[in-house]
Design a protein around this nucleic acid. Structure first.
Lengths: 109, 109
DNA sequence: CTGTATCCCGACCGATACTG
DNA sequence: CAGTATCGGTCGGGATACAG
């Protein structure tokens, strides 16, 4: 390592670790991936699309992603309730990255 | 989504999730990153380089990465013991990907 | 339909001590 | 130097029920 290079010797500082914390976990990648492919999806659609997830977990992960400004939540004040989730511009910039990860993953894992 | 596209609706099948499981976690990214930058490192060097990690965790994570064939372990039968860790060819292919993640992470998080 | 509220378990991880 | 052994705490995440 050149001496003027930043040394990511601490897990908390490592950008990759930060990334894993934000986008990683058991469900977040699938959610982002689905929204990337489908554009806008409702809560119930995501629930049905993701095998094995509970409403609690879905709700929680969506909140996390919204907080990180990766996804956007739009709630329509109608009865029955209707809420649509989609990626923000920031979320969409993940596209290439995720595509790269997928390629590597499929080739090497 | 086009109908001939694979639907990654299950966390276990999602390549990104698989990737996170293998390379993710609290310490693995930092380890891979250090080896990417430094080439070969000894157990003790890694231990000192990574802030806050315990020997137990380091040992465990190294074993995982070795099992995934991401890193290579070479043990010299000398006293005191000397063990060197480095990336495999497969591990080195992570370089671009991690670089991409780092760039995104630094710009967006 | 879109969520919350509880309860609970097991994996992950840290601290510490010990070994070849 | 390079690990292993043990103990224990925290927390993500699952099951289920309930609410607006």
């Amino acid at each position: 390592m050149k001496k003027d290079e930043k040394k990511y010797d601490n897990a908390d500082e490592c950008p990759i670790t930060v990334f894993m914390d934000k986008i990683g976990g058991k469900w977040k990648p699938v959610i982002v991936w689905l929204l990337l492919n489908n554009g806008t999806m409702r809560f119930n659609e995501l629930d049905k699309a993701i095998n094995g997830i509970t409403q609690k977990m879905l709700s929680q992960q969506l909140k996390d992603l919204e907080f990180e400004n990766i996804i956007k939540r739009v709630s329509y004040p109608v009865i029955p309730p209707k809420v649509e989730y989609s990626l923000t511009d920031k979320g969409k910039t993940l596209s290439e990255l995720l595509e790269g990860i997928m390629q590597w993953s499929k080739t090497n894992l």
